Simulated assay, not measured.
Amino acid sequence: MSVLPIAAHPSAQPHPAFRGRIGCDARSGHYAVPGRYRLHLSTSCPGGLRIAVAHSLLELSATCPVTVLPAVPDGPDGGHTALLPLYEATAHRHPGPALGPVLSDDWSGRIVSTHAPDIMRDLARRFGGDRLALYPCGAESELDAVERMCATGIEDAAQRAGDADTGPEERAAALDRLFETLGALERWLDGRTYMIRDQITAADVELWVSLVQLDTVHRNHLDAAAVHRLAAHPVLWSYARRLAARPAFGGHLDLDGIARRHHARCKGLEAAGAAVQILDWAAHAADTDTTPAQVDRY
C-alpha cells in the first residue's frame, strides 16, 4: 500500500498500563490455551470496539469469553470499579484509573495487556487459526501504515481540530491534516472493496472504527463547513456503510453508549451546525444480529 506520508504527532491516547503478550515470551507464562483468557471491554470505547469486531470476525466466543463493561466508567477517577481487583492483583497500589479494554488471565486473576493493538494481534495470531487472516503474512508495513493514519491522521487530528483548549491556528492545522488523510484514503479505496487485500483485514477494522468515531463523536465539535467537507468523501462513507451492514461490525455498534461516554468526558468546542450525522448508522446496521455472542456483564 502506498500512502501519503503523515507527519508524526504526539498521540492523545493514554499509555497502556500493562503490555504482556500471549505466546511470545516463555518467561511470561502466557501460553496460548483456549479458555484461559478473558476480554473486558466496552464497545463505546474505540479500542474496545476494535477488539469486539476482531473477536467476532475470528469467531472466538468459546475460545476467549467477553465480559462487557458499562459504556460510561463508574469510578470517581474515570475508571471501571469492576476492573479494580484485576489491576490491584497485577500491580499493588497501581496508580491511576482502572481502564479498559483488558485482556486478563483467568488462571492467575491478573492482567495480561491493556494495549488494544497487541490484544488484537494476539487473538488473531494465537487463536485465529484458518478462520480469517486479519494480519496476513507480508502485509505488516501496510497494516502499520493504516494504523498510524487512523491514530494520528484521523482520530488525533479530529480531536485537536475540535479541542477548546487549543488555539485557532493549531485547530486549523489539525483540520488540514484530517482532510489530507481522508483524501488519501478516498483515493486509495476508489475501486477497492477492502483496504489492503481482497478480504477483510485488521486495516479495515482500524479504519471503520475511526470513521465511526469521526461521525459519532468528533463531528460534534466541528462547524458546518468542516462537516460538509467530511461528508464529501463518498467512497469512504460508502465503504463504512458496507461494513456496518456486516454483523461482526454493525452488530457491536452501541450508539447510545458512544453518545453517553462522549458527553461524560467531552471537553470540545460547542457544535456549530453539525447536528446531523453523515451516516445513519442505526439504519445501516438494522439488519445485523445485534445480540453479542454469549457475554458476561458487570
Score class of each variant (00 low, 15 high):
T193G: 01
D106Q: 07
R197V: 01
L185N: 08
F179I: 11
L84H: 02
H115T: 01
A89H: 15
T81P: 03
R160N: 05
T114K: 14
R126V: 10
H94M: 03
G183A: 15
A71L: 13
L123Q: 05
L185C: 10
L103T: 06
E186I: 07
A161S: 09
G79K: 14
F179A: 04
L123C: 08
R187Y: 06
R131D: 04
M120A: 03
A202Y: 01
A139H: 04
D204G: 08
S210H: 13
D130A: 14
A124G: 06
S108G: 12
P95D: 14
D74G: 14
Y194D: 01
S141Q: 15
G129T: 07
D204H: 09
L134T: 02
A172Q: 15
T201I: 04
A172P: 13
S108Y: 09
D204L: 00
T201W: 06
T90P: 02
A82Y: 14
I111S: 07
E155D: 04
E169C: 12
P97K: 06
S210K: 10
D144K: 13
P97A: 14
G75Q: 03
A82L: 15
T114D: 13
G78P: 07
V112I: 09
A161Y: 04
P85N: 11
L86G: 09
P70C: 03
P97T: 09
L134V: 07
P70H: 01
H94F: 00
S104I: 10
L84Y: 00
G162N: 08
I200H: 02
H80P: 01
V205E: 01
A203R: 09
G138V: 02
I196D: 03
E140A: 11
Y194Q: 08
I119G: 02
A98W: 02
E155V: 06
P85L: 12
P117T: 00
V112P: 05
F127K: 13
I111Q: 07
T81N: 11
T166H: 15
S113E: 03
Q199L: 05
A184L: 12
E155G: 00
A173W: 06
D74E: 12
A158H: 00
L134K: 04
F179W: 15
S108V: 05
P85F: 12
H80Q: 02
R177D: 04
D165Y: 05
A172W: 12
S108D: 13
P168W: 15
A91R: 15
A82I: 07
L103M: 11
A82E: 13
E186T: 08
D165N: 05
L143Q: 08
D190P: 05
L143S: 12
W188N: 00
D77S: 11
A91V: 08
D176I: 14
I196L: 13
G109K: 04
T90Y: 11
T201F: 02
R177T: 08
D105Q: 06
A116E: 01
C137M: 10
T193C: 09
D74T: 09
D130W: 04
G191E: 07
A133S: 13
Y194N: 09
A98M: 02
P85M: 11
I200P: 03
R160V: 09
V209E: 11
S113A: 14
D105H: 12
G191R: 12
P70E: 06
T90E: 10
R93H: 10
P101H: 03
L175P: 00
T114V: 11
D165K: 08
W208M: 07
R121H: 02
T90D: 11
C137A: 10
L123T: 07
